[in-house]
């Protein structure tokens, strides 16, 4: 396996080299009418363009250094000939007149060289028919030309995630302290669910470095995937858990003694049970097994995560 991967890695370089000799795409300026002509009929659009990053001549490849409005909308001569009605003869970023692929292609003709956008083809957004203009507006001076701030922008489509982050246990997303893009590559990448890491744990450890270990005693499902027990977008149960201890823990740990005991209303503070209540009330199993993410305790107590 290792030899195969080394071969694959080494063989990719000649492909890169050959590819680098291939020329990039070029744009034709034939049929353009100039930005002044556009401005004469569309002063408001011009103003918003002028306020945007696209109007900056200091950026070598910006539309301001190409054909202005026609860099994105295409040559305007035919548009003029058709008296400009309803976007005739020109490309406009409308749901009615262009599909997502066409619209994104316009943007990518310049932005495909932007490193973080380079993997757009791999992302779920493209596959779902999302185009750049779903999130960005070309005519704006907003940060990153976004149509709205996170997370509201993402919640326009991700209704289910909005509902989850409203739950009582959640990351501080709606409080503005964690952004969707802190965890996800909205422009596409290699991670599952477009996460900005090679594994879920690698992502979580960026903020939760204390869980990184390596620990003397490990809890294998924890080490393999944080999402085994946690729902990162929000949960009805504390600590973003998918279920409450002791039930969650018992789903894997059924053994003689307390792991298999049914903890019911009788084991709560108000219950009349004469034993085993401290495995149920308050934080349940975590009352004692608080080092559940890993322990450095060398004895059996570390092995059971109680030290």
């Amino acid at each position: 396996m290792r030899k195969f991967l080394v071969f694959l890695f080494l063989s990719s370089f000649p492909i890169f080299l050959v590819g680098s000799l291939m020329s990039g795409e070029t744009q034709s300026s034939e049929g353009t009418v100039g930005i002044a002509t556009c401005k004469a009929c569309h002063p408001k659009y011009y103003e918003s363009y002028a306020a945007s990053i696209h109007s900056k001549k200091a950026i070598p490849d910006s539309p301001a250094n190409k054909d202005g409005c026609e860099s994105c909308h295409g040559p305007g001569a035919a548009h003029l000939e058709k008296m400009g009605s309803g976007g005739a003869g020109i490309f406009i970023f409308s749901k009615k007149l262009a599909d997502a692929e066409q619209k994104s292609a316009r943007c990518l003709s310049c932005h495909s060289e932007t490193p973080r956008i380079n993997f757009w083809d791999m992302g779920r957004h493209r596959a779902a028919g999302i185009s750049c203009d779903n999130c960005h507006t070309v005519h704006s001076g907003t940060p990153k030309n976004l149509k709205a701030r996170q997370p509201d922008l993402c919640f326009i489509c991700h209704l289910s995630i909005r509902a989850q982050q409203n739950k009582q246990s959640h990351h501080p997303i709606k409080e503005g302290k964690v952004k969707c893009t802190d965890c996800h590559d909205s422009h596409g990448g290699f991670g599952t669910k477009m996460i900005a890491a090679n594994s879920a744990n690698e992502l979580c450890y960026k903020c939760h470095a204390e869980k990184r270990g390596p620990f003397f005693w490990e809890h294998p499902p924890v080490e393999e995937n944080c999402l085994t027990c946690h729902a990162p977008h929000g949960s009805n149960h504390s600590k973003l858990l998918i279920d409450k201890p002791p039930k969650l823990c018992q789903a894997c740990h059924d053994a003689a003694g307390h792991p298999g005991t049914p903890y019911t209303s009788f084991e709560t503070f108000r219950g009349s049970a004469t034993g085993s209540k401290n495995r149920m009330f308050a934080r349940g199993c975590l009352n004692c097994h608080s080092n559940i993410h890993g322990s450095m305790g060398p004895s059996t107590r570390g092995q059971t995560f109680v030290r």
Binding site: R270, G275, F281, A282
Partner: peptide, 19 residues
């Protein structure tokens, strides 16, 4: 929540009800 209703800081000082 059933796990917190009727909260007691020291439900008992010994045994498996103790905390």
């Amino acid at each position: 929540d059933a796990q917190y209703d009727g909260y007691q800081y020291v439900p008992a000082t010994t045994g498996t009800n103790g905390a």
